[in-house]
Design a protein around this nucleic acid. Structure first.
Lengths: 170, 170
DNA sequence: CTGGTTGCAAACAATTTGCAACCCA
DNA sequence: TGGGTTGCAAATTGTTTGCAACCAG
């Protein structure tokens, strides 16, 4: 596993870990290497990652893929990670931050799968309206945009055989 | 408080078939039994269905599951059907209607998986803004709401013990 | 006829689970 | 020490594909 060293700084980077510690303790869950490594990784990448990508990135002395799946379930349940579905049948995860960046959406290129973060959100009021109209509680929402990015618009029609699974069309 | 005033079960009943015919012909594709049956079924259920559910519903003299997968790909490609991901790793499909009902979203109970249709949409302008801001073209969006329905609120407290696969827990 | 379609089975891919060894609190 | 965790492998489940038989145009 990655050498822990001294990571007691107070910058944003350190938050997830201390947060993890306290939250895990509340549930009599343990702070393990894999869990720390996964959060570390998610903190570095700002884009959503699939479990396979996480597994690959943790390759050096990394943990088992099954452990990653189990960890993502746990972290999602604890609200430290958020799951996204871009329509290709593969789950993607992002760290839930505490800053203004916390809630955001994505703009995904249906051609090259590029992902752009969209901080703009406006659905909060809608959530309230929807909840009231149907008597639901704890209403949240997921909103993603899909389109063709500038590069793909110019990149002619190179028949790059992208699997049907990828958020791709060309 | 916006009760779904009227039932939208028959008004646009006949459209899909004729629409299918013309659209398929344009692509030198054939009008087959399975395809008609699937559209018929989707026209009756106004809620999104999984391929497995479609397969089960077509049980009597129905078609192969593989055929359903293939058909859904085709129909999605032709814009006659829309795919939804509710976060449980299973694709769901709905018929694309031509009326005001065409574009809508869902409110899914994270407890019992009940699905409520939300006609209200307001993201159109956002699409334009997002597209312009990032140079994307043909931008669309997917928006789903999640919460706890009235019944589940009363049926005891199930914290966040959300099931893995099904958007269900109780 | 004839190329698009289907059924069936096998292949794939994403995700889950049983279990013994292992490790943090 | 003990119960939560992990790795490994096997099992599940969702989805795709190869191929011969089949059918709509």
């Amino acid at each position: 596993m990655k050498p822990s060293g001294h990571s007691h700084s107070h910058d944003h980077a350190a938050e997830p870990l201390s947060d993890l510690t306290s939250r895990l303790r509340q549930k009599s869950r343990r702070i393990t290497g894999p869990r720390q490594a996964i959060l570390d990784l998610l903190r570095q990448h700002r884009h959503p990652m699939t479990n396979k990508e996480i597994h690959a990135a943790l390759a050096d002395g990394g943990c088992d893929l099954a452990t990653i799946y189990r960890s993502m379930h746990l972290l999602t349940e604890m609200g430290m990670v958020k799951r996204f579905d871009f329509g290709d049948g593969v789950a993607r995860f992002e760290l839930v931050t505490c800053d203004e960046h916390a809630h955001h959406h994505h703009l995904i290129c249906t051609c090259c799968a590029e992902v752009v973060e969209i901080d703009d959100c406006f659905a909060a009021e809608l959530e309230a309206r929807v909840a009231a109209a149907h008597g639901f509680k704890s209403v949240t929402h997921k909103l993603e945009f899909f389109g063709v990015c500038p590069e793909c618009q110019h990149a002619g029609h190179s028949h790059e055989k992208r699997a049907r699974k990828k958020p791709c069309g060309c």
